[in-house]
Amino acid sequence: MNLFRLVADLMHLVSIFILLLKMQKTRSVAGRCSRISFKTQALYATVFLTRYTDLFANFQSLYNTTMKVFFIASSLYIVFLMKFKFKATNDPRLDTFKAQYVVGGAAALALIVNYAFTVQEVLWTFSIYLEAVAILPQLFMLTKTGEAEVITTHYLFALGTYRGLYLVNWIYRYWTEYYVDWIVWIAGAVQTGLYCDFFYIYFTKVLKGAKFELP
């Protein structure tokens, strides 16, 4: 474990708490103008369920196991809240990104490009590819609504920073222990790349107190 990865995981936690806080505070998934994509949250739950199949078999540390359990539980809880508790405020007409395309694409790629053709390894690889593009429905929704509540932008900032810091962690680990993992490196770079446009608007507008509005 290194500082970059620890802070990255904490940013991931922060993003989940921001989302839960927002939903709890506004008692909905759709504030005045900011909407949370159910598809993205469902994709994240799928990512954790397919990635942590080794939850009981591969004990790394108490930290690792605790975080895995928290990510699985919190992502399922968020899906539950959106699907049942705050269903009335969830308007599928705005969540129009074709999630089946990213699920199908990640599954196909995982069957072709993986480290081992075993069920667990292919599921893990699928979760890596899926996580890289899981934010697309949410970003797509932002382009449709054209703006987002500040708290939603902080959610996206934390989420984007988490994987961005993982990139730094991988550079550090390559440099100090010759750690190489092409699949997570390339997927992580794509994932962080998808946030670049958002980061630009976030830093140039939101942090200056302006509203988050897409040009």
Binding site: R5, D9, H12, D54, N58, Q60, N64, M67, K68, F71, Y115, A116, E121, W124, Y166, Y179, V180, D181, W182, V184
Partner: peptide, 10 residues
């Protein structure tokens, strides 16, 4: 291709 050792990252 070479698979990394144990999956020690989240």
């Amino acid at each position: 291709s070479s698979a990394p050792a144990a999956k020690d990252e989240l």
